[in-house]
Design a protein around this nucleic acid. Structure first.
Lengths: 352, 352
DNA sequence: CCTATTAAATGGAACGTTCCAATAAATCAA
DNA sequence: TTGATTTATTGGAACGTTCCATTTAATAGG
């Protein structure tokens, strides 16, 4: 119970009747010490209730084994998945990553980054907060700490990026809607301060152009990237002279909002108005109706980001190639039956 | 680009033409140094691209300002909320907490705890993984590190706990069901290796007893604490001779599963079978039908836990009082209308 | 039996900070 | 002026580890 002064390797040394250097060697698992000595030392370690002081060690050693993951919104399961994916590979590499949340706040992010640096991290994986200034990572670059961006990129930056293929995802989703016979489309939610927004919107626009949808039939409404934003977008669009009949949403949360708003108006998501989401969070599958969405495999991207980081650390470089992850459209029920074909019976088997 | 050897306070000292001690004082914001000197030093700090080495400082200082939060499942928004609540208060106290995820795995938890200790944390807030052995925190107690448990408690442990009033929550929910006219009830999901389970189940049982429900009409089915578990529980219960007409679920995820399974059988959650959840996650409000659930204010509990931790650190104690957070039943649509009010026409039991 | 080689263990310096005691400079009381 | 006091600044010794250069012990080669 009494927590007497913290035990150090000197205490262990005394207990085991060896020198501090020997203890240090044992701690590092060096093969230079006689097995019986090692056993003796390990017993002493146990007896004195020793806890390794990594701070002291890092003072002498070149590199720490701490990696920081900076996430913009942990309450969003989508980003939580990303973190979990990274953790998985770090774990198997014997590294314990520390996660910090910025709550989408650039000031907070600055603090977090500073703190992590002071802690002497070996590397940083960051999903930058919205509104991050381009200079925010200058200090890190100066310090030569390897950094990779996950899920989001910054406008102009040489830092390697791991993101899903947003452009293609949006293209696929839009093509799906056109294929269902829709001719007046909308892109709901998101705002232009996010690079992701431009990527997804770009895919939407390209699909419209390629597939012969007039620009005036491709409505774009910015909005919050949550349920509320989705509800607002739908209301706005339905108030127009020639409202769209289908929408690609910036993400699933927006899509859920749109479906909620439809229901509130007595419209049925799917038959009455087609909705596609983006991200394919777990909820999407269980919604009523199940949401068609672009799956991005965020856990997989997390794993990839972690691998890249480990490589960077090993090769002591601060550069790496970008990685664009494959996406695929998961078709469920929220786009209803084909518009031009006859209405099929309501019971569609959920394609997974 | 070139990351020349890390700058230390000596480099700053040379640059500013003062001694290292002066620099140290400036870094600590001591009022002892002349303002003009401080300005000079701060400029030098900026110029050399200095980053504070907290590890070195902690070696000398009494304690670090790092606090660890160990969460059993970050992908569960419920626990993510808890983490965010804690973060909020730590932030305003100038502390950057590090979050680590154990993915409900006691072995992983052990590693995480060890790593955090080695890092020299000043305190630890833990939501223990399922199946944590009672001895898992002995080392921490020996080291005199303040620990508080959040959301979950361990069977026998002197470590302070911050949890919602599970017993009362379950009691309220059960009473609500009885008040709606249900006489054959069920408790779905969870398993007895979790203390929370016993607390919630206890509330359910007490309510049944107090309100005159026979034990044989109070069905208890253990199961996974996710959607799948909920679906399984419902199936099992409906296969019985006299199936229940209402269920209190271990948590919202189970409740969602139950509702899903009901729909799959062509039954309407609410009118045909009443469902109450526990935790009141954001989704609950938006589900179809909206889920009646016991709100526990996890962010609030997180804040409370953080406050307790800060107190403990300041008063250098490892003990504190438990705190049981208030809960309240949020009534929505998943329990349908009153049973006795309506004619007893709709038979709910053995569908199929 | 002596020396060369290998194996095992060790002492000392260094890492970047803080803190204490000591100094130097400026101010005050007499 | 002189000593006492206050105000700013400073050098040196820790803190707990790692790593290098040595020392000591054990083994092999002749």
């Amino acid at each position: 119970m009494a927590s007497r002064a913290k035990a150090t390797i000197f205490d262990i040394a005394r207990e085991a009747g060896v020198s501090k250097s020997t203890v240090s060697l044992v701690l590092q698992g060096s093969g230079l010490i006689r097995p019986e000595t090692a056993v003796k030392v390990r017993k002493a370690i146990e007896d004195v209730g020793y806890v390794y002081n990594r701070g002291a060690a890092n003072l002498r050693k070149a590199h720490s084994n701490v990696i920081g993951m900076v996430i913009n919104d942990l309450t969003n399961p989508f980003f939580a998945e990303l973190a979990v994916g990274m953790e998985r590979v770090f774990q198997s590499a014997g590294i314990v990553p520390f996660i910090a949340n910025t709550a989408e706040n650039p000031v907070r992010q600055e603090e977090v980054l500073k703190s992590l640096m002071e802690q002497g991290v070996a590397g940083l994986i960051v999903s930058p907060a919205r509104g991050t200034t381009p200079g925010a990572f200058r200090r890190l670059e100066m310090a030569g700490v390897p950094v990779v961006f996950a899920m989001r990129r910054l406008p102009e930056s040489r830092i390697p990026v791991i993101t899903p293929d947003n452009h293609r995802g949006a293209y696929l989703a839009t093509a799906h809607l056109v294929g269902k016979g829709h001719r007046r489309l909308a892109f709901f939610g998101g705002s232009s301060d996010l690079v992701v927004y431009h990527e997804r919107l770009g895919g939407f626009r390209e699909a419209c152009e390629t597939l012969g949808i007039e620009p005036r039939d491709a409505l774009i409404i910015e909005g919050e990237t949550n349920r509320k934003g989705g509800m607002a977008c739908l209301e706005t669009s339905l108030a127009m002279a020639e409202p769209p009949t289908a929408a690609l949403c910036f993400n699933d949360a927006v899509a859920f909002g749109v479906m909620l708003a439809l229901r509130k108006r007595g419209l049925e998501p799917g038959p009455d108005f087609a909705v596609v989401g983006f991200d394919d969070v777990v909820e999407a599958e269980h919604y009523m109706p199940a949401l068609t969405s672009v799956a991005v495999d965020s856990a997989g991207l997390g794993e990839r980001a972690a691998h890249v980081m480990i490589k960077m650390i090993q090769s002591r470089t601060t550069r790496a190639e970008d990685h664009i992850g494959a996406v695929n459209l998961v078709v469920r029920e929220s786009c209803g039956p084909d518009r031009r074909a006859k209405a099929r019976s309501a019971k569609t088997g959920g394609a997974a």
